[in-house]
Amino acid sequence: MAIDPLPLLERLIALDSVNPDLSPGGAGESAVAGFCEDWLRERGFEVHRLERRPGRPSLVAVARGSGGGRSLMLNGHLDTVAYGTYKGDPLAARVQDGKLFGRGAFDMKSGVAAMMAAAAQATERARLPGDVLLACVADEEHASFGTEEVLERFTADAAIVTEPSHLEVTLAHKGFAWFEVEVLGRAAHGSRPDLGVDAIAKAGHFLVALEELGRRLAASGGHRLLGPGTVHASLIDGGEGPSTYPAHCRITLERRTVPGESAATVRAELTGILDGLGATVPGFAYRLHEGLHREPFEADPDSAIARVVLRQAERVLGRPPVIRAEPFWTDCALLARAGIPCLLFGVDGGGAHADTEWADLASVRQVTDVLAATITEFCSGTP
């Protein structure tokens, strides 16, 4: 019997799960994880609660198969961004003109509701040959420690991340690498240019070179689905006062990467630029510090999970689904790094991280139908 995901989605929206690493004082995932745990246990799932960081739980709910089938993991994150200037009550789901409004409606409690309803529907009457795993994870909006914790203990033959994708099948996304360039000067009184080295002025040479790198990347063509990688300066800090030569200028930059690029290739790229400036700009010196980085992702369009999702999406939508790539990062990259073939498929809507957020109601039901049929077909196949 079909399970309507919309009442479940309304309950999920009503539970505050703002990520406290993004917004100090945020509620975190405890309340929403507790609700999901109760809901899934009532429907016969074996639920594992992972909580290395107190107050930041992730869940893995398992419907054990009878044996001989393929296992499938559905992954969705429980955390949301802050309410900020959200218009109206962010925890009160509101339906209007075929849309459901509320914080997390689009990103991504709709995907969590769809995967929970689909898994319950696919397993309620009989055991499938393969295991079905639901990973309801913490912290995707910040550093994804939830999915990392899950992958230390669980694996599957394939996975689907149910981030919103406008009913299009996402087979690739960009990664990112954060670096800090510290340009070194020499502090001195503003009246003594003979003693000082202006780190901010030297940093200007690097900013010009960074802009030129961006132009070269844009002209490179890049990936067949994602286009080229990009780079931009995000933060700049330097100086101590109007009458002091600055000893340091720090520039934080973000490099968005495409398949074939990595933090190592970005480091080499930046080192080449900085060493070139050191050889041509008198007094230019630097330190390069590597920050957080996440890999880009690309799925095999001929993998078993891709073929099943494409087939079931075409059946439900009445047309072949659009194949797309995302410019932002998702947990697909972590699953792929763990050796799990995966892709991304989710609802239509809009307003992620914005002052108004909504999910298209019809699409939530369509995603649920696609996921339920995919679970049944994939988990009935042989490994």
Rank of each mutant, 00 (worst) to 15 (best):
A2T: 15
I3H: 12
L6A: 08
R11I: 01
I13M: 02
D16C: 03
G25A: 09
G26N: 02
G28W: 04
G28Q: 03
A31Y: 03
G34S: 12
C36Y: 00
L40Q: 01
E51Q: 09
V62W: 00
L72G: 03
M73V: 07
T85P: 01
K87L: 13
K87M: 09
G88W: 01
P90E: 09
V95W: 07
Q96D: 14
G98I: 13
K99F: 05
K99H: 12
G102H: 00
V112W: 09
A118S: 11
A118Y: 04
A120S: 13
A120F: 05
Q121W: 14
Q121C: 08
P129N: 07
V137D: 02
A143I: 08
A143M: 12
S144Q: 05
F145D: 03
F145A: 01
F145L: 11
G146C: 05
S165I: 05
S165A: 10
V169G: 00
F176D: 00
E182R: 11
G190V: 11
D194S: 12
L195H: 14
G196W: 01
G196S: 05
V208F: 12
E212N: 13
E212K: 15
G214Y: 11
G227N: 03
P228G: 08
V231F: 05
I236V: 15
E240C: 08
G241N: 09
T244G: 06
C249Q: 03
I251P: 04
E261I: 13
I273K: 02
D275A: 10
A285V: 04
R287D: 10
H289L: 15
E295M: 14
A304L: 11
V309L: 13
L317A: 10
L317T: 10
P320E: 14
P321M: 06
C332S: 14
L335S: 06
C342H: 00
G349C: 08
A354F: 06
E357H: 07
V367Q: 01
T368I: 02
L371Y: 05
A372P: 03
E377T: 15
